[in-house]
Design a protein around this nucleic acid. Structure first.
Lengths: 214, 214
DNA sequence: AAAAACCTAACGGTTTTCAGGTATTTTATA
DNA sequence: TATAAAATACCTGAAAACCGTTAGGTTTTT
């Protein structure tokens, strides 16, 4: 390869970021041109850098991986994106694909697979690890993809979700946001409808998974 | 330093494991003698290896970091332990300290701090990052430490917790375990008492944090 | 400008959780 | 083997969550 692959890495853990960089330092055909610790920072830096491939964590606070991918695909279409996640959850994978991700690998995969993914994605091909492909082939996956619209939470809903996840009850949330008890209930109901769960356990799991809290 | 510091690293993410190894490869006075992807594997390997310092993730399935630390401190007292975690939560820090951990750092800290921690802990001193120290100095921390006995869940309680975290209600859990509705309620109440929360949101957060589910 | 989405609020009713007990059997362990 | 801990089960009443629906005003998008 005559030209180095320009990489941009996004992860909220400095230790992980440095680890990946250290691994990729030894690879002659790759150059890490920038890193960021969340989606918002990444977007700012993308005005100054034009990476060939961007690797992003899915679970990040503020602006998470899925949202970042969506924006990149609209505004920086030359950059291909690999999502990295701790867990293989079909909803997340489904949303990442809908957002236009080019690859999806898990954190429990090693260096060789990471390099394969980077090369493939650089060449405008897709790369998904076996575990992810298994889930994608699952019959339920296509159903889920078809019937489940992309979850877009409003800022108010995220706020309510955050407070629910802090173990606050409806009245406490109402007091804190200066809105009526009933309004909080509506937000909660809409959250459950959008996220597709029937109780608060599902909500808090989603919140943690999406990095909205913790 | 005449002798290399022998390191053992435990983390369920291969990518993280390899990243850390790559970082530490460049450090002359450190030698990574072994790695493991969970607490159980680590314990097995500790029969063959005697590391000076063991670095372990806190959130792992099967046998988590806290439990691993407890066992190491009993059975391999020569090995000092550094806990690595994604988030700084006072309960977890408190339990790690009670388990006898020698250092506690966050994944959002970088290489230089990691090396400092390893050196300090190797010399039988403690090392805690600023963020962790802040939490430890918090007046509530000492209270929490004093009044909160170490959480020991029975296997049945863990089972119920797992099902609660799967968004199942009391009746569904009762049916699945072939026990009475009321019994499930007792387990749930005991879980809430032990974990120190007043609702299921707190339970599921604990379950995720402890790697009991997900 | 129209349509869609969002935020707000309310009502009535159902289901589930939560908090406080008592009590028996089984299992682990000192 | 004593006894402590765990698992089982039941009860009551209160609190909170859950469900369906309507509806008006605001903001954003098309």
């Amino acid at each position: 390869m005559e030209k180095k692959i320009k990489l941009f890495i996004v992860d909220d853990h400095k230790m992980f970021l440095e680890g990946i960089q250290s691994i990729l330092n030894d690879v002659s055909y790759i150059e890490v041109i920038a890193t960021a610790k969340n989606g918002a920072d990444a977007l700012k830096l993308l005005n100054n850098f034009t990476p060939d491939v961007l690797i992003t964590d899915i679970n990040m606070p503020e602006l998470n991986g899925i949202e970042l991918i969506e924006i990149i695909k609209k505004q920086h279409s030359k950059t291909n994106v690999i999502a990295v996640s701790s867990h293989a959850e079909s909803e997340v994978i489904s949303e990442a694909i809908k957002a236009g991700v080019n690859g999806y690998i898990l954190k429990n995969t090693g260096k060789s697979e990471l390099l394969k993914a980077i090369k493939k994605v650089y060449e405008d091909e897709n790369y998904f690890t076996e575990e992810v492909k298994t889930i994608m082939n699952d019959s339920l996956f296509n159903l889920a993809k078809a019937e489940k619209q992309l979850v877009k939470l409003s800022s108010r809903e995220k706020e309510v979700l955050r407070l629910i996840s802090q173990e606050k009850n409806t009245q406490e949330i109402a007091d804190e946001l200066f809105i009526a008890f009933n309004t909080v209930e509506v937000h909660r109901k809409n959250l459950m409808r959008k996220i597709g769960t029937k109780n608060m356990v599902g909500l808090v799991k989603y919140a943690i998974q999406q990095g909205i809290i913790k």
